[in-house]
Design a protein around this nucleic acid. Structure first.
Lengths: 145, 145
DNA sequence: TGACCCATGTCAGTAGTCTGACATAGTCTG
DNA sequence: CAGACTATGTCAGACTACTGACATGGGTCA
């Protein structure tokens, strides 16, 4: 019977979910006063680093479906935080860029999120941090293979 | 400006979300044919290891709100996968236990999930695995403090 | 004892994301 | 060149989980 059940306390999968949930909750807490969700913030952050990303590319970067990202982008465009090209330079992908308002919103959010991430990493050595990066990348690769 | 934006490629938070998402997607893929969600599976797994957990305790263990877990438990009880005490031995907490049907469903799900977790850990040394466990625990503690 | 605080169970409404489906643009291939 | 395949954008509906709210049980303490 010891093989029939997964030991949660020592399960890397369980702990991975616990850590990701804790991070998400903390991020939601600091973003809510700004009227932003985690996906909303992720979208702006992606556009700041790689202007011109399409809806599908943003979806992959924020780990949601392109349908979900599409809904978000439509509201962000209505609110003037992003601008989408009216026609595709190639294929059907429509490049999106931040507006000054979008950059302004991002600056506030990024500062708040940085505080959370700094707190999360406070007790970690550089060595531990590097190992964790490598291990997480390995897990992602193995899962997708 | 280098300080204004969080570098996603080397951000432990971003990678944490990526890995957790990849794991969740893979688990959903193997659980969907069984008609189960990840939360559903988590609930059964928790009850197998600690029979008699209450709704709120299950919610904390599965990283959802007690309201969400309550909805799930009601449907699981209707389907005969769990049994809830009709009155509380102490306080308001109602102990929940698995039925034979629940254990049967869990056995199928647990095997499927074990396959996913094994795949995720395939490329990791024991040392890396232990470091990852320690790092993730550290993050959780720091975030909640 | 009575006021206060905290945890729990539960109902209702909302919000975010998902799956399914369809049309379109580009690429590969026999 | 024609057909197949893949990627993208978008609409619609369903589902999951969330926040808000309320009542109840138990413990604390002045």
């Amino acid at each position: 019977m010891g093989q029939d059940v997964i030991e949660l306390d020592t399960s890397l999968g369980y702990l991975l979910k616990e850590a990701a949930t804790a991070l998400r909750v903390e991020m939601e807490d600091v973003l809510r006063p700004l009227g932003m969700t985690v996906t909303h913030y992720s979208c702006l952050e992606l556009l700041a680093q790689r202007p011109g990303l399409s809806n599908s590319e943003l979806a992959r970067g924020a780990f949601v479906t392109r349908q979900s990202m599409n809904v978000l982008l439509q509201s962000l465009e209505r609110e003037g935080q992003v601008v989408r090209a009216t026609e595709a330079p190639v294929g059907k992908a429509l490049p999106t860029t931040l507006t000054p308002l979008g950059r302004e919103r991002l600056a506030l959010a990024s500062a708040a999120v940085r505080g959370v991430e700094d707190r999360m990493l406070a007790a970690l050595s550089n060595s531990d941090r590097d190992t964790a990066l490598r291990v997480l990348r390995s897990m992602v690769t193995s899962l997708r293979g």
